[in-house]
């Protein structure tokens, strides 16, 4: 009797909650769409008003109408890729250590520490960068100045590592214990089991971790602005990593406050925003494409 009386009420509650959740879900699509529309509306006129030859020239000096965005794109790519190369081995290594190797008590100390690292505001890391890392690299590597792409990459690596660690560690934890036991039972060493069984089984999650880490590095502004020197130079050679660079995010952050709404400079800054949007879109699409491919392969093997 009681059950029957409750049922319709429960259903109403369900519908309400479901629709609230639905609205939340759709709203994020709406927000992304609105952001894209706004970016396009403000940024695309730049393609019309500023000559393409000027946009793809090598000099960025907006107060004289020089809008060469190549050095900025190069700066962002250089810093982001180097940061990923630094963060990837450290992040994965830490994740594997925490999830597979470390005894329980170390695990319980390490995890919160990594989470604290994730919580440090990037401007604080920037301060440490200016006061400690910049002088150290200048002396240690004998550079003209420590304000270089490399310093930025190291800081960004530090910022990306916690993201990679926590997501990758979760992925490794979801691998069923049976996989590891089977590996060990077949006579594989612990390292062989980790490298040959556990990590491949968690590949999708690890890939997501890496992509999130890259996204974090790509979008980071404050710390990069403080330590990379912000000189919009194109690379002269292989040692460009040890020279100052100017990233797209730093350019937008430092110049947006000054521009008159609707001016060419304003439009070009939004165009840079569109490019950043596209870059992160490409990263996300690659990530999901690779991970669905992996999942299909895994399903085939398991079935």
């Amino acid at each position: 009797m009681k059950e029957n009386r409750m049922a319709p009420k429960k259903q109403i509650g369900d519908t309400v909650i479901t629709s609230i959740i639905k609205v939340c879900g759709y709203s994020s699509i709406l927000f992304v769409g609105l952001i894209l529309v706004f970016l396009l509306k403000e940024g695309l006129p730049a393609l019309k008003d500023v000559p393409i030859t000027s946009l793809f020239s090598i000099r960025w000096y907006p107060i004289e109408g020089l809008f060469g965005i190549l050095p900025l794109i190069f700066g962002t790519l250089l810093v982001t890729i180097s940061a990923t190369l630094i963060a990837l081995p450290f992040g994965l290594g830490t994740a594997i250590f925490i999830s597979e190797v470390a005894p329980r008590w170390i695990k319980e100390i390490l995890k919160p520490i990594v989470e604290i690292l994730a919580g440090i505001p990037s401007v604080v890391l920037g301060f440490i960068g200016i006061l400690v890392i910049v002088p150290f690299f200048r002396k240690f590597l004998d550079l003209p100045t420590g304000l270089t792409a490399f310093t930025g990459a190291v800081l960004l690596g530090l910022i990306a590592i916690p993201t990679i660690v926590s997501v990758a560690e979760d992925a490794l934890n979801t691998v069923p214990p049976g996989y590891r036991q089977a590996g060990l039972a077949l006579g594989a060493t612990r390292w062989q089991t980790i490298w040959g069984v556990t990590v491949p089984a968690a590949k999708t999650g690890i890939l997501t971790a890496v992509m999130l880490g890259i996204g974090r590095a790509l979008g980071e502004t404050m710390a990069v602005m403080m330590v990379t020197g912000n000189a919009p130079v194109l690379p002269s050679g292989l040692n460009a990593i040890f020279e100052p660079v100017r990233t797209m995010t730093a350019t937008i952050a430092s110049e947006m406050g000054e521009v008159a709404t609707g001016s060419q400079h304003y439009q070009v800054l939004f165009l840079i925003g569109i490019l950043l949007f596209l870059l992160s879109l490409v990263i996300n699409i690659t990530a999901s494409a690779v991970s669905t491919k992996q999942r299909k392969r895994a399903e085939r093997i398991l079935s």
Binding site: Y61, P71, G229, A231, V233, S254
Partner: peptide
């Protein structure tokens, strides 16, 4: 004439 491109612009 403008600043040489390798001038560091600090915030």
């Amino acid at each position: 004439t403008i600043f040489s491109a390798d001038t560091l612009l600090l915030p």
